[in-house]
Amino acid sequence: MSLTILARAERLQHLSPEHAGHDGFAAGLKFEGGFSLDRTVGLGAPQIRAVLVDDDSLLGFGIYPGDRLIVDRSAAPAVDQYVVAHLDGEEAYGVRLLAPDPKGGLLLKAARPSIAPIPLDDRDSAQIWGVVLWVVSYVGRG
Rank of each mutant, 00 (worst) to 15 (best):
T40I: 07
S36E: 10
E90R: 13
P117W: 04
A50L: 15
V84I: 12
D101I: 07
D124W: 09
P113A: 15
D121A: 10
G42L: 06
P113N: 07
L43W: 08
L108W: 02
I63S: 10
A75D: 06
R123A: 14
P102G: 09
I63P: 09
D80E: 13
A116E: 15
W129K: 01
P100I: 05
D55M: 05
H86Q: 14
V79Q: 09
D101M: 06
G33E: 13
D72T: 04
I63D: 09
G94H: 03
S125N: 00
S114R: 11
R96P: 05
E90K: 10
R73Y: 01
G60L: 04
V79N: 00
R123Q: 14
V71F: 06
D67S: 03
L52Q: 10
P77C: 02
A99H: 03
A78D: 09
H86C: 12
Y82I: 02
I63W: 06
G89P: 11
A85D: 05
D56Q: 10
D38F: 01
S36N: 11
G105C: 03
I115V: 14
D122C: 04
L107V: 05
G42E: 09
D80R: 11
A111D: 07
L106R: 11
R123G: 00
G34K: 01
R49F: 12
K30Y: 00
I128Q: 08
K109G: 04
L59R: 11
L43C: 11
L106M: 11
I70A: 03
F31P: 08
A116K: 13
A111E: 06
V51W: 15
A50V: 08
D72G: 06
L43P: 00
L107A: 00
A111I: 03
V71D: 07
D88N: 12
G94K: 03
K103W: 01
L43F: 11
D55T: 13
A110E: 01
L87N: 03
V71A: 07
V41R: 09
Q81L: 07
G89S: 11
Q47H: 15
L120K: 01
V83W: 01
V95F: 00
G94Y: 02
L52W: 10
A111H: 05
P113E: 14
R49S: 12
E90S: 13
L108G: 05
V53A: 12
E32M: 10
L87Y: 01
G42S: 04
P100Y: 02
G44L: 10
A76E: 15
Y64H: 15
R68K: 00
L98I: 03
L69T: 06
F35A: 10
Q127S: 14
P46E: 14
L59N: 09
L108D: 02
S57C: 12
E32L: 14
G62V: 03
Q47P: 07
A111K: 02
R39G: 00
L87K: 01
R49C: 11
G89M: 06
P102F: 05
L98H: 01
G105L: 03
P102N: 08
P117C: 08
I63V: 15
P100E: 12
R96T: 02
D38P: 04
A111F: 00
W129R: 07
E90G: 06
P102A: 02
